[in-house]
Design a protein around this nucleic acid. Structure first.
Lengths: 352, 352
DNA sequence: TGAAAAAGTGTGTTCGAACACACTTTTTCA
DNA sequence: TGAAAAAGTGTGTTCGAACACACTTTTTCA
């Protein structure tokens, strides 16, 4: 027990060479005679030598800066608070390894703010980038520049296909819709009408929303052949409260038999408020533990929230870049996070 | 960006003293003139000095050993694979800080194996202990000895009340039954009969099982006043497959109207097999992502699994003791982990 | 064949914090 | 009042890995 850790000096002694020579072998820097190299490699294996990361980091004097570019946090949409919290917490733990994280925010309502912040990041010449690619076109331009500068980047929360990101950290988007389908079906009777509601501003993330919706439909296609559910889709291209409520009213008057609503964005709380105000007994499923959703879930006007491990996403993104930069570990291209199913009863254990 | 980190030398320079004096102030070791002390403290604050953990750990040459005492992993019950995996993975990350974890296993069918392993641990005089207190009486004797030796310990997975554990890392047990209640109600019609099934060997964890059951009842008491569900309880004090199936048969013949079963232990898979073999259309909820449960969930004969973040429990237990021993951070007495709701559709993202 | 280049090897310094130790200055008290 | 004790302060070494540099030995090739 407490078996003393093996150091380079130990290996040097066992192999009857100096520490410098051991070092050369370990780092494959050549300039070592074949027989000594063999002896050193044997000793490394026999004593299971692993360099001490602390001494290593101290000696290397690394200075890595990673930039994160994510949507602005606001009172109506505080989703990104959590991934950022996870990322900053993880980065704090790597601080003494010379690893620093700098977070940049863009407005989801303003492509040009994305472009501005992206430029700032490029100018900083960071060692790695974490990107939430909400604006697809602008993101592609951005990552092209990163690639030119040989700056590794990961996508977080959603991905753009066919890019050279070293990893994607986030949910399996199609599956998140699939899970929603399962939860929805568990609440409805045969034949009851369902509404899929896309509340978005413009074209951001549109392919993502399509995937979610497709997952939702897939569930019913695969599992509900005996029932014939009607699944409608309503797209509201606005984030203005009044306008959304107006659209909802219009729709519900024309379609009074809707029994379940699946909101594919984090704005289920708006629908929940509408249902509560009008005493509508309609099942509701939404995404993300944003504050407004949390209170609606508590109050009972949202039935299920699917949460995509936001904190873990931030932690994982930072850890991935840390491992790449500091430990030269190439990550898996895809790192899916859990699709947590949140109800009022287990909510508390997912907060902070 | 890249703002050079502040070192003790920097502070010494700013305060016009030597590094040794700064060190004395930082560690409150006295022997420093009042005026210099003030200058140093000011400099520390002004430059936001934080000692480099790497250099600190390297210099201190710490040697901490923590022992974990948990149930044996077997092919019928591999639950503890996951917490152990989490703990070992976390410990691996702290290795270079001089932190080592040693895991000991006892048989859930043999109190004396617990006593044996506990004695071994006491003899090792570890710096901390992680304990799954399945056997209450024996655990209390064990922790009394730990307290005598001033060895801090945490409970994991379940707790014994009124002990001097520095923390409990695990689920809110009552709430886990409550969540099960919610899930069960979501699947049943008004008035349908429910069975709560306790499959246990002997008296281990009995108060825990009572809490789970109570949580389950609480849910119905608080939320199902309009329905009158009959909730029966069956206790099977055996882990022998044949015997369990026999008891189940007996019970089901006498109670043919059971529509939902909640198994309060990780043995739901046995019931699932029984249902599948006899083509019984009975909803089933169980605990823990053990292998047999996973396959039954996949196959559809278990509807919901409640998982208590097993990996995270291991990680958290190790991290808690590490922070206590290395960083002198006193943890919260209670650290609840998420009660994950697992269905076939999101299962994959909770494995490994 | 012998000077230059290449290969092979060890020594010493550095990262930043901790702390033992030596040394100086001040205080205590018989 | 002057020796001993206590207080105050700086220097130097250590942890383990990385690597620059100096030095020695071998190889190359005109």
């Amino acid at each position: 027990m407490g078996t003393k850790r093996i150091t380079i000096q130990d290996i040097a002694r066992y192999a009857k060479v100096s520490a410098g020579t051991v070092d050369r072998v370990i780092h494959n820097r050549g300039r070592v005679a074949a027989d000594k190299k063999k002896r050193i490699e044997d000793a490394v294996k026999e004593y299971n030598f692993n360099p001490n990361m602390l001494a290593r980091a101290l000696s290397l004097r690394n200075q890595f800066t990673v930039c994160a570019l994510v949507p602005q946090i606001s009172s109506e949409n505080d989703y990104w608070k959590l991934p950022v919290q996870g990322a900053e917490q993880a980065a704090e733990g790597f601080k003494d390894f010379g690893f620093a994280l700098e977070t940049f925010y863009f407005s989801l309502f303003d492509e040009s703010s994305f472009i501005d912040q992206a430029r700032k990041i490029i100018e900083l010449k960071p060692d790695g980038v974490i990107l939430a690619p909400s604006f697809v076109k602008e993101s592609i331009l951005f990552v092209k520049k990163l690639e030119k500068g040989k700056i590794p980047y990961v996508f977080i929360d959603s991905a753009i296909p066919n890019q050279k990101n070293i990893s994607y950290i986030g949910p399996n988007v199609e599956r998140s819709g699939f899970v929603a389908g399962r939860l929805m079906m568990s609440m409805l009777r045969a034949g009851e009408q369902i509404l899929v509601l896309n509340i978005v501003k413009g074209m951001e993330n549109s392919s993502n929303l399509r995937l979610i919706e497709q997952g939702f439909h897939n569930y019913f296609a695969e599992n509900a052949s005996e029932y014939v559910h009607t699944i409608n889709t309503l797209v509201i291209t606005s984030t203005d409260r009044t306008l959304i409520l107006q659209e909802l009213t219009k729709y519900y008057i024309k379609n009074p038999n809707i029994k379940g609503v699946f909101v594919t964005t984090s704005r289920a709380h708006l629908v929940a408020g509408f249902h509560a105000d009008h005493e509508l007994d309609i099942r509701l499923i939404g995404f993300d533990l944003v504050e407004d959703n949390i209170s609606r879930l508590r109050e009972g006007s949202i039935d299920w929230i699917i949460s995509q491990s936001p904190i873990q996403q931030g932690v994982c993104a930072v850890k991935t870049l840390f491992d790449l930069l500091v430990n030269k570990i190439v990550p898996n291209k895809t790192q899916y996070v859990p699709l947590d199913i949140i109800i009022r009863e287990n909510l508390d254990y997912y907060l902070t």
